[in-house]
Write a protein that binds this DNA or RNA. Structure first.
Length: 565
RNA sequence: GUCCCCGUAGCUCAGCAGGAUAGAGCGUUCGCCUCCUAAGCGAAAGGCCGUGAGUUCGAAUCUCGCCGGGGACGCCA
């Protein structure tokens, strides 16, 4: 039963002259700021003008006329019509729906037959994974899961940063000072060392730079030796990254990165030329975006080389041709707002209808204790270090609080990683994140461990309950604490829909914390394993639904919830 | 210089297709484990929602100006 629509019907029965579809009235309904005011409210101001009546008069008239079995009462208050849904009915309806839909509860399946390509994480070869990569990786991962949950075919793309002169330098450095075994063993760390050494030595010996350039040229020309080393660097980097991705529960369907598009740019440039979009300016080839209030889009350098935008045009086209997407997302920091605006505009000018399906999911920058990240100055926190520290902390707390727990290592892993990921997805993505160890490693209050703890608590109660055969007495869920939990469970589908529409995983994170908080209050105030069989059965249903929804919400932001902790 | 984003409690932030007394966590102070996991629950304290106008029955929410912070503005990605 859809309470909003049912209420809208009752409103329309009493003011047919409003002549509006029920769905529209349903949309006007609000949730009062305080549960004491009611479960739903209809602000009569909205109809005041059309009906030429005062809001108070409309509310009064409706209050006198509206009634329904599922409504406990209806009140007119200062122009608002407040609806109090019969508590037992409300609980029964919401819980029946949530429990019968099971692990599909929250999804409307609206993505069936549609495809979303999501570009996220997009790491650089031969660089270490640090906290600056957490946002794109986890926001992208969450969107990937959300899209799949709504029935979309989702394609996760790790657009590798695997092109540029720095790789020529790396090869030069490797050939001079490196050896295969050390790099195999040390992974990315060793490659970074080689790179750093290259720059140090190049200051004394400028000839090194030429050597680096020469090696890059050999990569470009497809020289077997250069390519073999280059591809090996990629393998080593990905093998390293894979460990972190596995810990984070992140996966991809494609690793087609920058180098993949090397042979796909010339046709795009040709197409731009044919469509009359390419202009020569100061020796370079550009697409003029002046009429759209943007700086020109640089397609070719004056020396004929391609640029970032050229590559992204080729990638956009390739993704469209390959996946036939209905939506294409780029989870990239806001520094590149202009770049993506230009990219989408050029695609539009090329006549691609699907340019509208492209979206830049931008997010804020990460700083470290008030300063910008700097690998060189050591102002950086590597992801594996952060995750390891978090897991160790979780392990310590487990040893202290639940020394008898089985599988402590795995549970510590879930909690530690969960704390970090939850922290990364807690705020609106546009907010900058200033990283402080104690904040990221906080396990109290609205944190990942808190929500997980609530989940474990609910699991614990359900384990202790014998399968109650009694008929649930939904009246036992009439108290404010239980009602608040029911209300949140009812809102879950809407929250997910908004999170998807706005590409905003933090809405799910917040929701999980809200539900956990409501459940904890309920847990504290009401005895779930009550002596009364009817009350006990009803509270157990509420507990099960809460546990399931919390678990689902956490899953959607990339976390797994332990059953004991 | 131009354009974009942000500005809500000591700190970190929710709320922003306008609605009823502005919420949460952290931190501070004080309570609660003979009862389902105290990684919990409760209470106190803490706000002219940057600022000035405008639109509206109604503005933290929309528009414009100003101030403060961040970012981007052709041959890097």
């Amino acid at each position: 039963m859809d309470f909003r629509l049912a209420i809208a019907d009752r409103i329309l029965e009493n003011i047919p002259e409003a002549a509006l579809p029920a769905a529209e009235i349903a949309n006007m309904l609000e949730i009062p700021p305080d549960a004491k005011l009611g479960d739903y409210a209809f602000p009569c101001f909205k109809l005041s003008k059309a009906l030429r009546k005062s809001p108070v008069a409309i509310a009064d008239r409706l209050a006198a006329g509206v009634s329904a079995p599922f409504l406990a009462r209806v009140e007119s208050v200062k122009g608002y019509l407040n609806f109090f849904v019969d508590r037992a009915t409300y609980a029964r309806e919401v819980l029946s729906r949530a429990l019968s839909e099971g692990d599909r509860y929250g999804s409307d399946g609206s993505g069936q037959g549609r495809c979303a390509v999501i570009d996220y994480s997009s790491i650089n070869i031969a660089k270490r994974f640090h906290i600056g990569h957490l946002s794109t990786t986890m926001i992208g991962n969450s969107l990937y899961r959300l899209y799949k949950f709504f029935g979309w075919r989702a394609v996760g793309v790790n657009h590798l940063g695997d092109w540029g002169t720095q790789f020529g330098k790396m090869i030069a450095a490797y050939r001079r000072w490196g050896d295969r075994e050390t790099v195999e063993r040390g992974g990315v760390d060793e490659m970074v060392k080689l790179y750093v050494r290259f720059h140090r030595e190049a200051e004394k010996d400028p000839a090194l730079e030429d050597e680096g350039r020469a090696w890059f040229k050999r990569i470009e020309d497809g020289d077997p030796e250069a390519l073999s080393i280059f591809n090996w660097f990629k393998d080593v980097t990905l093998k390293d990254a894979e460990k972190t991705y596995e810990l984070l529960g992140v996966s991809f369907d494609s690793y087609a990165g920058e180098s993949f598009y090397n042979d796909k740019m010339a046709p795009v440039v040709e197409e731009l030329r044919e469509k009359g979009l390419l202009k020569e300016d100061q020796g370079a080839k550009i697409v003029d975006l002046e009429p759209y209030g943007m700086p020109p889009a640089l397609i070719l350098r004056s020396d004929g080389a391609t640029l970032y935008l050229t590559r992204d045009l080729a990638a956009a086209k390739y993704r469209r041709d390959t996946y036939d997407f209905d939506r294409s997302l780029y989870v990239v920091a806001y520094q590149q707002d202009l770049h993506f605006k230009q990219l989408f505009k050029v695609l539009e000018l090329m006549g691609y209808e699907w340019a509208k399906a492209c979206e830049h999911v931008s997010f804020g920058m990460v700083s470290f204790e008030g300063q910008t990240l700097s690998t060189r100055e050591g102002r950086v926190v590597y992801l594996d270090e952060l995750l390891r520290t978090a897991v160790e902390k979780a392990r310590g707390i487990i040893e202290e609080k639940s020394p008898g727990l089985e599988d402590k290592g795995e549970i510590a892993r879930q909690i530690g990683v969960g704390a970090v990921v939850f922290f990364a997805l807690y705020n609106n993505r546009i907010k900058d994140i200033d990283f402080w160890w104690d904040r990221a490693l906080n396990f109290d209050g609205e944190t990942g461990p808190y929500v997980m703890y609530t989940h474990a608590r609910a699991c614990s109660v359900l384990r202790k309950a014998e399968d109650a055969q009694a008929e649930p007495d939904y009246g036992a869920l009439s108290d404010p604490e239980a009602q608040e939990v029911v209300r949140l469970i009812e809102q879950f589908p809407q929250v997910l829909k908004s999170a998807l529409d706005r590409s905003e995983p933090s809405m799910v994170t917040r929701f999980s914390a809200d539900l956990a908080q409501a459940f904890n209050k309920f847990y504290y105030e009401r005895r779930i394993l009550d002596d009364d069989p009817g009350a006990r059965a009803a509270r157990l249903l509420l507990t099960r639904a809460s546990r399931d929804v919390i678990k689902q919400a956490l899953w959607l932001i990339g976390l797994s919830a332990p059953e004991r902790m």
